[in-house]
Design a protein around this nucleic acid. Structure first.
Length: 423
RNA sequence: GGAGGGAUGGCCGAGUGGCUUAAGGCGUCGGUCUUGAAAACCGAUGUACCGUCAGGUACCGUGGGUUCGACUCCCACUCCCUCCGCCA
């Protein structure tokens, strides 16, 4: 959420931001409410000052045995008026909150202006496309032929867009999770956290999933299933004040992720690319505002490190204003090469939300030299999406006979060099 | 599911209708002392909103009510804790 005062003072900037994002909402209704609110507050505070005066007078008179009937009557009138004004103020503020929640973050100045994914810019790439002497098969075909991926039974147990993995397929999933966590904790200095996989409404609101994207979430009667570890991990410090010297705080968490994928019917219906439930190792940072964009570069390179160790060809793309997520000020997508389809697929998304989430969640820090408490900047990135990593490995490391070589870095975790057919 | 207890500043914690401008402690910051540190002592230290300024207002879990006036009394709700029951 943006600060209403900031919107008021930087209306042009916010309007440009909305236009560049292709957003359809305007600022005028919010600004009108803002004006109304300030007028009402001024009136109410004047009356409250008067009420405090009268109250003091009555208290003193009572001490001297006096009885101020006239003042009491006046007080009653003032109190009624205050109550009325307070109700109106609250209504206006509720309306403003609803409107402000719908305004997306302002893209950072370094973000290219554009309308759709075609305007995203490739920043760099790593590795090379692997060469095949045969026509590479899609990962679901590789997995089903080996008997390690089982979409049919998953559909029977639950439904479409779920997966069962068997044997070394299951082990690959687990190996990747452990491998990623070990790299981020051991080499990147992240602290591992284990969180609830369901959260309440306040947490979903702070990170920006609610109120706008409720149709994307699975829910129980009481809670929402996490669509990403970003939600529980970022909310660890909601409504807390951190110490400046503790920043940046670097966390990493594994969670399953649950997404309805509403509006994506017909897209990626086969394989592991778009599932209702998938595993992800997530990097989250709480950063000092002065260096959060440096933190974004670091965090992105930490996610890249996993792809490098796995020997997977990828490229880094900076999202243009039109493709940028609602809460993000700047996002790099890591796209891994998928030889069967001959395309790069998103496998990680690394974003700096600046103070957008921390304002909603009141995540703050106290500067050392007696300055005012400030909002932290929050960042996160997949490090990586595990299901898509499995897909990438199956496609990039497949061999003519249908077996799949295990990337060097993963062998200690897999216990084998080769994934052969299930017996 | 049943019974009971609780929610006050960064943290702990006192506070039964108007000197609450929220006691006291811890922590933090500054100072004195010290070669330096610790200890001791002295002082400072909440957040947000309105206003160009002066200044003003609000905030003791949330929302109502009573009252001239609510941290304090009444009602409802939320969350946390303890015990019992059930249970991986």
């Amino acid at each position: 959420m943006l600060d209403v005062k900031f919107i008021r003072q930087n209306a042009d900037l916010v309007k440009t931001s909305l236009k560049n994002r292709g957003a359809s909402i305007g600022l005028d209704p919010l600004m009108e409410k803002d004006h109304e609110r300030r007028t009402l507050i001024q009136k109410a505070e004047e009356l409250k000052a008067a009420r405090n005066q009268f109250s003091m007078k009555i208290a003193k008179a009572k001490g001297q045995g006096g009885d101020l009937e006239q003042e009491k009557a006046e007080m009653r009138r003032i109190s009624d008026e205050i109550k009325d004004l307070d109700t109106r103020i609250r209504d206006v503020e509720t309306a403003m909150e609803t409107m402000a929640m719908e305004i997306p973050n302002i893209p950072h100045e370094s973000v290219p202006v554009g309308s759709d994914p075609n305007d995203n810019q490739v920043v760099r790439s790593w590795g090379e496309k692997p060469h095949f002497d045969f026509t590479p098969r899609d990962h679901w075909e590789v997995g089903e032929n080996l008997g390690i991926l089982d979409f049919k039974r998953a559909a029977k147990i639950t439904g479409a867009r779920f997966t069962v993995s068997w044997g070394l397929g299951s082990r690959l999933e687990r190996a990747l999770i452990n491998f990623m966590l070990d790299v981020h904790t051991g080499e990147h200095g992240c602290t591992e956290v284990w969180t609830p996989f369901m959260t309440n409404r306040d947490s979903m609101t702070a990170t920006g999933q609610l109120p706008k994207f409720e149709e994307e979430l699975f829910r129980t009667d009481d809670f929402f299933l996490v669509p990403t570890a970003e939600v529980p991990v970022t909310n660890l410090y909601r409504d807390e004040t951190l110490a400046e010297e503790d920043l940046p705080i670097k966390l990493v968490a594994y969670t399953p992720c649950f997404r309805r994928e509403a509006g994506s019917y017909g897209k990626d219906t086969r394989g592991l690319i778009r599932q209702h439930q998938f595993n992800k190792v997530e990097l989250v940072r709480f950063a000092h505002p002065e260096r959060s964009f440096t933190d974004l570069e670091e965090l992105t390179s930490e996610a890249e490190a996993i792809l490098k160790k796995l020997g997977l060809h990828y490229r880094v793309v900076v999202l243009c204003t039109g493709d940028l997520g609602f809460s993000s000020a700047k996002t790099y997508d890591l796209e891994v090469w998928m030889p069967a389809q001959g395309v790069f697929r998103e496998i990680s998304s690394c974003s700096n939300f600046v103070d957008f989430q921390s304002r909603r969640g009141q995540i703050r820090f106290k500067p050392k030299q007696g300055k005012k408490t400030e909002l932290c900047h929050t960042l996160n990135g997949s490090g990586l999406a595990v299901g898509r990593t499995v897909a990438a490995i199956l496609e990039n490391y497949q061999q003519a006979d249908g077996t799949v070589r295990v990337p060097e870095a993963l062998r200690p975790y897999m216990g084998v060099d080769l994934i052969g057919p299930m017996r």
